[in-house]
Structure formats: structure tokens, C-alpha cells
Nucleic acid binder design. Structure first.
Length: 820
DNA sequence: CGCTAGTCGGTTTTT
DNA sequence: CCGACTAGCG
């Protein structure tokens, strides 16, 4: 620690006398960090003893309460930084919390080793006591990809047809069991039977067995094994009970059963007598208290589908008797109309604790609802509105488009590319999940430990070096028989004539490389080692030769990876943390519109939020309804609530009558959520008398005959053929065959619709053209970030028409391309 | 072994 | 429509 003295100062001593006086003195000085908290927030910060549940509605200062509470504990000397357990769900949240605590208490935050995600804290505990659960402390953590590859091996070993019973499905099943804290023997018979004719449980058990031999865990084990450890080793449990004087949990509504069990073990301390074994425990009066503080919002629980149990938060006061429940209902984010709309909507949910959000802000703009004929027009409207805002000097960084499903994004991307409107897509594959990163890591893992079969297998033929399935299979079997790692087996067999000459030579070269790298592992700085490995293995070369659009990006990612290794002491340290902590937080500084899913928007806020796709079937998602029934609907509604409450000043909802999903045109009716918005806070735009606010029976958004302008979209043409949209848009028929179902997919034969791009939008394009001649001319070879390489075929002002090698013909603004 | 043409199946995402 | 995965050929 950089400055132990300062740390001591904050921490105080457990003994009551010096800390007490100092604390009182500080309290009288009315610590500055408490300034500006409202009474409820203050109560949440100052109620330190016993279980506390803080129900923090959207925008009510949840993180502030959490961080201030920690600062408060520290400055009162109630606990040392190392005696506080603070749990979040994501690394991002943990980082942010650390940052904010740091800004209040300074370096003391560096002494908080127990601030992190459930998983990272689980690892920390497990590494210390690994032998007690049958692991060695250097165990590796497998991610989903490794997990699936391992399961594939098991499936083929068990002679199970992978077509019928995919490894993916089994992985999900096992994950689900682990989320619920179930070990193989605890899996309910009925569920185990659902996979491979009742062999699910057996496979789960075999998989766990295999993990132990590999000295590996998957993500679920990080929780499950910790639970097992704490249950089976009372001494260890006592040690942590003693250590953690205060426990704080963020986003409690997202906890799953395993996390809940984990938490309860740590938080539900035995009564005081049990603790008196330790001398210092007797000295402090509240030792036996469960100083647990959970912060969450049942109305923002949107991860039920991956095991989160809203129930955990709903019954908190039963689990922790005497719990104090504090509601934070003053919203500091959104204007009146937005908040009213969101509150009214969420009130339709039955399973909730119930909060009433208030704001002292002005009413502001009403939430707008706009209809569009199809998703293309929807994207066009959103684009126009954004450009209007842009003209009024609104920052694009303060604008977000929040969609239900990621396939909705493309439409906006296409449109924004045409307009030359900068945007960024948030989410998508995360940094460490990208193939190139995983490959690079596999090389490093294999060099670091010759026992890491999974890593070795991943890169044995990447780049292609003539070591295909046959060779890998051979190595696999023989390594297993000889009870040695694949790498060791490979090293041996490379010098015999058991393999055909070609693979043998390849293998020999590869192993020579590995030996050389391993020899330099300790002498060379690990970043240099990494660069060397990536170069000499031919991996960098492979991407440099690749001419696809994302190859450049991948090379950047690799550079980024090597850069990020700098922060670690050595290769070992880097690899230990990488599997848990690696995520791309490379904040683009360019002013741009954010496009993301509603899920990934949780916790964020923007001045203006666009919410497209509010249609039955899409939002609420039909699948959610089918699979989860009412619970599914309520979760979708919470998602809508999350979406609306992301907006500070403007929320703009859209729905499209026609949408192309997977190449099929579907006709949808407006979302029921639209009917659940309060009339007084909503403004329906861009319709000429079509919408009548007729109460909740017949949707007031159902009737759509009256969009005035002329449209050339397929949906419109189809509608005209059919004679308009009477009948509420339910019918999905193509005109010939009658359609039964409401969500019937309808294939439209290729109508003579205008070619995508130029024609329908010519007017706008010309109007926006800068007039200055483009620096490009016909025939130029250019590179585009999204579309890759192509040739310019037409130039008009700053707009280029480009024939891309892979993506086909597109029209883009010239600032989006560069010459190659 | 590696490439390519065909099939299949497509919410939401963290660790 | 578009990507991921596989069977089957060179």
C-alpha cells in the first residue's frame, strides 16, 4: 500500500476508544460527504447495523448511497477497508464503485481487496483454500467456449448424437443448475431426464469430474465451490464471518439462487457466543449483527431468464428478520412526464414491492409515440429527429437508441451510415470473447502451462499448419492413455514416425516454437514475449493477409491486448485475472449516437432516448410470453420501464406496422405497453387523426389508415393491395392464402420495391450534400470500417457509391472511408 | 486436410 | 436476410 499511515487514519482501530472519539469528532463536523443527501439516502447511509434493504428506484442515487455508505463506515472507523465486502455483478460496476469511493476517501480504497464481483471474490476465496475443495490454487477458469468444447468431448465419448443433443444446450442446462446451486446429485430427476434420454445428470457428474482432473472450474463453480467450501469447512466460514464486518450488495434484484446462498452463508452469522472464541470479537458490541446492506430495484429486474430470482429481493425481510427497508423514491434524473409515464406503466405489474417515483424537476417534454409503416421508415424518422437535435447543438453522446433485440440495430446502422451520422454499437461480442483475443490467450496459456490442453487444442491449427482433426484426435486419445498432457504427447510423437511425415514436421516445428517460448518465459518481459509468440507463430501474419473488413480491427484488438498486459506484473498474474476481469472499456471519445439493447442500457442515462420497435411480438417479446407467461410479460414490462427511465429529458417511442425479420415480412400491431402509458404524459405524433384515445379495450394505436404521406414500402403496397389496414393489423396474410395466426410469418415475393438506398432518399441526400467536391473519384480503391474494401463507382458531392468486395454496393459519405 | 456450397436457425448477457 | 456450422469434394 502506498501510504499505510493514511490508511490507518481512515480505518481507525477496532478498539472503541480512539476510533470512537475521532468518529464523534468527525460526525460533529458534519462530514462533507453527507452533504446533499436527501433524508432517505441519509438514512440508508447511516443505518449501519443490522440488515438493510434499500429499494432504489431508477435515478434515485443508488450508487451514491452505496459508495457514501462505505465512506461513512470507513470514516467512522467502524471497519478497516479490508473488512468490508462489497459485491457487484459486473466488473464495470465494481470499477466504478471503486472510483467513486476513491474520490471520497482517497487511498483507503486501495485497501479494499473485497470489492468486486461475486465471481472475482469467489475466486479469491477459492484460491486460498483450493485444496479443501479438491483443486490446486493455480486452477484455471474456463469460459463458455472452453466449457462447450469440453462437453463436446464428453458427448462423443458417451456416444450421444450431437445433432440431437447439442453441447450448447447441455452447457446451458448445467449452467442453469449451477445458477440454482444444484450439484449433480441434487438435480431433480425430471430435469435430468430432459437431456439425452435421461443422461443429463450423468453427463453433469462426468463433466465435474473432468474439471477436477484438469484443475479447472467454470464460472458457475466459482460460486458453487465457494458455497461448498463455506458449508463444509466451519473454520473457514468462521474466518470470513470474522473478517467481513460489513457486507454490501449492489443490484440485489439480479442475484440468482447460488449467489443468494453464497451471500446468506457469509451474512447470516451465528450468534455472538460462537464468535467469542476470537478475543477481539468480544470487544466490539455488534459482532454478531448481520451488517448486510442490499441495494436494488425490483422494477429493474430484467435478468430472470438467466437465473435471477426477483424473489430474493421480494422476501428480503423474511430472510433477514428485523431488516430495515428504505425506499428511495426521489428521482433526480428524468423530467415529470417521462417519470409519470414510466411509473404508470410499471404499475401494471403485480409482483412488485411498489414504489412511487417523484421528481421536483419540471414536467418537460411529453413522451412521444410515433408510428411508421415499416422499420425502414422508423429508422429514417429516428435519423431525422437526431439530425434536428444535432442542429440544435445537442451532443450525440447524449442520444441513445435502445432496442429489444440486436437484429433491430442493423436498420439504424445502415441509415446512419447513409446519413454520415456517427454512431457506436454498445454490446456485441465482448473483448475477451473475440476469436483473436481468445486465440492469443490460448497461445499464452499454453506457453504458461504445458498442461493446458484446452488452450493447446484451440491453437494447434491456428493459423492453419496442417494439423487437422485427425492429428488432434490422435493426440487426444494417446495423451489420455498415457495419462499425460497433449503437449507432452505432441513433443514425444514429433520425434517418432507414428504420424505421417507432413503433420509430424508441422508438429515438430510447433513444439520447437513452444519450447523456445517457454524457455524465455521468465527472462523476457511478458509483453515482449506475447508479441514474439504472436509473430513467430504466424498468428499476426494470418490476420494481416486476411482482407476482410474486420481484419484490421482484430489486429488492433491484439495490440490492445498486449498493451493491457502492461498493467500486470508477469504473465502468470495477467492470465490469472484475465478470465474474470477482461472487458473492453475503451471509451470512444468521438461524439456519437449510442445504439444498444435495453438490457445493456441498464444503469446508463441519456438526455434523449429513442425506443423503437414497440410492437406486439417484438416488445413484449412473443417468446418471452410463450415461455414465461405472465412472469415473462412482467419482465418485459420492467424492460420497458428501464428503457423509459434512461431518459433525462426526451423519450421517443416508435412502432412499425411492418418489419422484416429474417427476411420475412411480418405485420404487427402496436405494443400493449403503449396502451399502458398515461394519456396525459404522452403525445402521439405524425398521425393525422388516426389514433383515438379510446381507452384500453381496443388499442388506441390499432387503427392506422390515416398516415397521410405517400409511401413506397412493401408494407404500404401490400396494405393497399389488401385494401388498407382495417381489421387492426392482425392479419398477416399475403393476399392469397388466408392467414390464421396472429403472428403468422408472411413471405412477400420480391416486390418491385425501390432499390435500397439512393432512390427513396435522394432528396435528403442532395440537400445534405456539402457541395464540396469529394477527394475521391471513380475507380478509387477504398476501405470502409464496416464494409471492408471496395471500388468507387460513382461520386456525387461527398457521397460515394462503392462496390464493396464482400458487402455489395453501398452509398456512403466519404468521411467514412479511407484510400488503400 | 482445407475449401465451398448447402442447411439450419435465428431475444435479452454476465462471469 | 445473414451467419454459423457441416457434409462432401478436390
Amino acid at each position: 500500500m502506498a501510504d499505510p499511515l493514511k490508511l490507518q487514519d481512515y480505518a481507525g482501530a477496532p478498539a472503541p476508544i480512539p476510533g470512537g472519539i475521532a468518529a464523534r469528532a468527525r460526525a460533529q463536523a458534519a462530514p462533507r460527504y453527507l452533504d446533499g443527501l436527501n433524508p432517505e439516502q441519509r438514512e440508508a447511509v447511516e443505518t449501519l447495523d443490522g440488515p438493510v434493504l434499500v429499494l432504489a428506484g431508477a435515478g434515485t442515487g443508488k450508487t451514491r448511497v452505496l459508495t457514501t455508505r462505505i465512506a461513512h463506515i470507513l470514516s467512522l472507523g467502524k471497519a478497516r477497508p479490508s473488512e468490508i465486502l462489497a459485491v457487484t455483478f459486473t466488473n464495470k460496476a465494481a470499477r466504478e464503485m471503486k472510483l467513486r469511493i476513491g474520490s471520497m476517501v482517497g487511498e483507503a480504497v486501495e485497501g479494499m481487496p473485497w470489492l468486486g464481483t461475486f465471481h472475482s471474490i469467489g475466486v479469491k476465496i477459492l484460491r486460498r483454500h483450493a485444496e479443501l475443495v479438491g483443486l490446486k490454487s493455480g486452477f484455471t477458469i474456463l469460459d463458455t467456449d472452453d466449457q462447450i468444447r469440453l462437453l463436446k468431448q464428453h458427448l462423443s465419448a458417451a456416444n450421444i448424437d450431437e445433432k440431437r443433443w447439442p453441447a450448447r444446450v447441455l452447457a446451458n442446462l448445467i449452467d442453469g443448475w449451477k445458477n440454482r446451486g444444484l450439484t449433480p446429485s441434487q438435480v431433480p430427476a425430471g430435469e435430468a431426464a430432459s437431456f439425452a434420454n435421461g443422461r443429463g445428470q450423468e453427463l453433469y457428474a462426468a463433466y465435474q469430474e473432468r474439471l477436477k482432473t484438469l484443475n479447472a472450474t467454470d464460472f458457475g463453480d466459482l460460486l458453487l465451490e465457494t458455497i461448498r467450501l463455506l458449508r463444509e469447512q466451519p473454520d473457514v466460514l468462521r474466518q470470513y464471518h470474522h473478517r467481513f464486518r460489513y457486507i454490501l450488495v449492489d443490484e440485489y434484484q439480479d442475484t440468482n439462487v447460488a449467489q443468494y446462498m453464497w451471500l446468506r452463508l457469509l451474512a447470516q452469522r451465528p450468534q455472538r457466543n460462537d464468535l467469542l472464541a476470537d478475543g477481539s470479537a468480544a470487544a466490539t458490541p455488534q459482532r454478531a449483527e448481520t451488517n448486510l446492506c442490499c441495494v436494488g430495484d425490483d422494477d429493474q429486474s430484467i435478468y430472470g431468464w438467466r437465473g435471477a430470482e426477483v424473489d430474493n429481493i421480494l422476501r428480503f425481510d423474511k430472510d433477514f428478520p428485523g431488516a430495515k427497508v428504505i425506499r428511495l423514491e426521489r428521482n433526480y434524473r428524468s423530467t415529470g412526464h417521462i417519470l409519470a409515464a414510466a411509473s404508470h406503466l410499471i404499475a401494471y405489474n403485480e409482483g412488485r414491492l411498489g414504489k412511487t417515483l417523484r421528481t421536483e424537476d419540471e414536467l418537460g417534454e411529453k413522451v412521444t409515440v410515433s408510428g411508421a409503416w415499416d422499420s425502414e421508415e422508423e429508422a429514417r424518422s429516428v435519423g431525422e429527429e437526431i439530425e434536428q437535435l444535432q442542429r440544435k447543438d445537442h451532443s450525440l453522446n447524449q442520444i441513445a437508441i435502445l432496442v429489444r433485440a440486436s437484429y433491430q440495430m442493423r436498420e439504424f446502422e445502415d441509415r446512419f451510415i447513409t446519413l454520415g451520422l456517427p454512431y457506436r454499437v454498445i454490446g456485441g461480442p465482448r473483448f475477451y470473447e473475440r476469436a483473436e483475443i481468445r486465440d492469443a490467450l490460448a497461445y499464452l496459456r499454453a506457453v504458461n502451462s504445458s498442461a493446458d490442453d484446452l488452450a493447446f487444442e484451440r491453437i494447434i491449427n491456428v493459423p492453419k499448419r496442417g494439423l487437422g482433426d485427425a492429428t488432434v484426435q490422435w493426440l487426444h486419445e494417446h495423451a489420455r492413455q498415457a495419462n499425460m498432457s497433449m503437449m507432452d504427447m505432441a513433443r514425444e510423437v514429433a520425434n517418432t514416425d507414428e504420424l505421417k511425415p507432413k503433420p509430424r514436421q508441422s508438429l515438430r516445428d510447433l513444439m520447437a516454437n513452444f519450447d523456445r517460448w517457454a524457455a524465455q518465459k521468465d527472462s523476457l518481459p511478458h509483453t515482449e514475449l506475447a508479441e514474439m509468440i504472436l509473430d513467430e507463430s504466424g498468428y499476426t501474419d494470418m490476420w494481416q493477409k486476411d482482407r476482410s473488413a474486420d481484419a484490421a480491427g482484430r489486429l488492433d484488438n491484439l495490440k490492445e491486448l498486449v498493451r493491457s498486459m502492461d498493467e500486470f506484473e508477469n504473465l502468470q498474474g495477467f492470465l490469472e485475472h484475465i478470465s474474470l476481469v477482461m472487458d473492453a472499456d475503451r471509451g470512444e471519445q468521438v461524439d456519437s449516437v449510442s445504439i444498444m439493447t435495453l438490457h445493456s442500457a441498464k444503469g446508463l442515462e441519456f438526455e434523449t432516448v429513442f425506443l423503437p420497435g414497440w410492437e406486439e411480438g417484438l416488445f413484449p417479446s412473443q417468446r418471452s410470453l410463450d415461455e414465461q407467461g405472465r412472469a415473462g410479460l412482467e419482465e418485459e414490462r420492467r424492460l420497458a420501464h428501464v428503457g423509459l427511465t434512461r431518459a433525462r429529458r426526451r423519450a421517443k417511442i416508435f412502432f412499425a406496422t411492418n418489419r422484416r425479420i429474417h427476411g420475412m415480412w411480418t405485420t404487427n400491431i402496436p405494443s400493449r405497453f403503449l396502451d399502458e402509458l398515461p394519456e396525459a404524459d404522452v403525445e402521439v405524433t405524425e398521425q393525422k387523426g388516426g389514433f383515438s384515445f379510446s381507452g384500453y379495450g381496443a388499442s388506441r394505436f390499432d387503427r392506422q389508415e390515416s398516415f397521410g404521406s405517400s409511401y413506397t414500402t412493401p408494407g404500404w403496397q401490400r396494405a393497399q393491395q389488401r385494401g388498407g389496414f382495417s381489421g387492426g393489423g392482425y392479419s398477416g396474410g399475403s393476399g392469397s392464402a388466408p392467414s390464421g395466426g396472429r403472428w403468422q410469418k408472411t413471405e412477400i415475393p420480391d416486390l418491385p420495391r425501390p432499390r435500397k438506398g439512393p432512390r427513396t432518399i435522394e432528396g435528403e441526400l442532395v440537400a445534405k450534400s456539402t457541395g464540396t467536391a469529394s477527394a475521391y473519384s471513380v475507380g478509387d480503391r477504398v476501405f470502409h470500417l464496416k464494409f471492408g474494401n471496395g471500388n468507387v463507382t460513382f461520386v456525387e458531392g461527398n457521397k460515394l457509391t462503392i462496390q464493396f468486395d464482400k458487402a455489395g454496393e453501398k452509398r456512403v459519405v466519404d468521411s467514412f472511408v479511407e484510400r488503400v
